[in-house]
């Protein structure tokens, strides 16, 4: 049914593609988590002007598609003098989009810590800083893990879009093979298998993490 010889000959391309996917994803996710932390901190601490800016950022990035953001970064910004490599644009794009999702997940985690925990810390004599560091944040981390993991999976999937700015990720490889050799089924087969190999383990780890940290919520 499938040309297995073809499959085995071109599988290495998909490995290369997977490397690109993972490369972009890892850095994009790291940028997203960093951005998310900063934004969640700003919103929770209610810093006056920055807070509004963060809110605008979150609304804008969540209501526009990644593809348009990438095109804007890759084709549009050079006209203003910012010429970045495709990789750079992809990472910034993923980080920009992911940052707002991460921020929301982390903020939810912070807000989910019951007020009584802070009151208990107060009665025991802990300072604000000690309360934040030793009581609130550990609990917030436990609660936000499911959301963060879901976002990680989401971002890896979104990374497939970077093929549109000619980055040689998994999606690009598939498109290329279909275009070049008309071996549609083989290419699609490799496409599906590669993504399953990347995403299934992470999905399973996510479910495991969710269960392990569920004790924080009584």
């Amino acid at each position: 049914m499938l040309d297995w010889a073809f499959v085995s000959r071109y599988a290495p391309f998909f490995v290369t593609g997977a490397e690109m996917t993972l490369f972009i994803s890892v850095f994009g996710i790291a940028l997203a988590i960093l951005t998310g932390l900063v934004c969640a901190a700003i919103e929770t601490a209610r810093i006056p002007v920055l807070r509004q800016i963060v809110r605008v950022y979150i609304e804008v990035s969540r209501n526009t598609p990644l593809l348009v953001q990438l095109y804007f970064l890759y084709f549009g910004l050079p006209k203003l003098g910012f010429v970045w490599s495709a990789e750079m644009c992809a990472i910034i794009g993923l980080g920009f989009l992911g940052g707002s999702y991460m921020s929301e997940a982390m903020r939810a985690g912070l807000e989910a810590v019951p007020q009584i925990q802070r009151e208990n810390a107060y009665m025991l004599g802990l300072s604000s800083r000690q309360t934040m560091l030793h009581v609130v944040i550990p609990q917030a981390i436990s609660t936000s893990i499911p959301g963060v993991v879901a976002n990680v999976i989401f971002l890896i999937k979104e990374s497939s879009v970077v093929s549109a700015i000619a980055l040689a990720d998994v999606m690009y490889m598939a498109k290329d093979l279909i275009g070049m050799y008309y071996t549609t089924y083989e290419a699609l087969f490799l496409l599906i298998v590669t993504y399953l190999i990347i995403l299934l383990p992470i999905s399973i780890i996510g479910t495991w993490l969710e269960r392990r940290f569920d004790y924080a919520k009584r």
Binding site: I153, K157, E158, S159, S160, V161, S163, M171, A174, K175, I178, L188, L191, I192, Y195, L196, L199, L200, S203
Partner: peptide, 9 residues
């Protein structure tokens, strides 16, 4: 679990 773009293809 599959990216939407992959599904479209």
């Amino acid at each position: 679990i599959m990216p939407q773009l992959a599904l479209l293809f």
